[in-house]
Write a protein that binds this DNA or RNA. Structure first.
Length: 259
DNA sequence: ATGGTAGGTTCCCTA
């Protein structure tokens, strides 16, 4: 079972790129972020034409997450529990072939001297609580994929000093990310790869892609029961090099069939 | 110290 995460930066603007990626990479499950549209305007015909079902949690203009799957999607939950006032579409969760999967678009948090940063930290606290109190006790396989907007450590950014005060690198953000890992959750790519300087996002500005100056912020987090079945995890740089590319590139993992 | 790019909306915001 191949599960991929991809921040597409607008599903409408990116549709040709997303369709060719689905055909080339052929994930069984695709976790999308920043679709930037409402469910009614999601390009369901084109995507179902490639054999995918979908569950969409969207809003106008900003944010928005979706789950695509070649096999049935069950028990969909939209929105991260813990704050009924939060209207931003950043979390969707469902069961596919017995695996609980989520597509996460974690708040960016910049600039850090505005209310955006405490919103990010509060959102992360809610995620920590939900994973600890609800998902972990289920003792089932889960894969939480998405744009976490967290650089786990200085090996995952091209210029650690220059980024030290950015919300993606701040110790408050990293501590909350680690709080999830400390529950026995596995970050799939880092567990299987030791190299430094591997990225999943390159800013559109200042030739960051051409200079390979990026950050690794798109992650797949696995429960112990899913990590038992982890056989591969890779960053697919091909989509980032195309015309009209997203500023993120997909990350995927392969989970073996249940014993 | 600033600006560079992309995508959305609406005469500016988010990343």
């Amino acid at each position: 079972m191949k599960i991929a995460t991809f921040n597409v930066n607008s599903i409408k603007a990116r549709l040709p790129r997303v369709l060719e990626w689905l055909e080339d990479a052929a994930p069984d499950v695709a976790l999308l972020q920043e679709i930037k549209t409402v469910p009614e305007d999601f390009p369901s015909l084109e995507i179902s034409g490639l054999g995918y079902e979908m569950a969409v949690h969207g809003q106008k203009s900003y944010n928005g997450v979706a789950i695509l799957s070649r096999t049935p999607i069950e028990d969909v939950v939209m929105g991260l529990p813990g704050d009924d006032e939060d209207t931003q579409a950043r979390y969707i969760e469902a069961t596919i072939q017995g695996v609980r999967v989520a597509s996460i678009y974690l708040p960016n948090g910049n600039p850090t001297d505005t209310d955006k940063f405490p919103y990010k930290l509060d959102w992360m606290d809610r995620l920590v609580t939900y994973v600890r109190d609800t998902l972990i006790p289920q003792e089932r396989p889960f894969v939480l994929g998405g744009d976490y907007n967290v650089v786990p450590n200085d090996d995952d950014v091209y210029d650690p000093e220059g980024w030290a005060d950015d919300a993606l690198c701040r110790p408050e953000s990293r501590a909350r990310f680690r709080a999830i890992l400390n529950m026995g959750v596995t970050e799939a790519w880092r567990t299987l790869h030791k190299e430094i300087g591997a990225y999943s996002f390159w800013d559109y500005q200042r030739g960051r892609w051409q200079r390979d100056e990026g950050v690794r912020i798109d992650h797949l987090l696995l429960s112990p029961q899913a990590a038992d079945r982890l056989v591969a995890c890779e960053i697919d740089r091909v989509p980032r090099g195309k015309e009209k590319a997203s500023d993120h590139t997909p990350v995927w993992c392969e989970i073996s069939d249940a014993a």
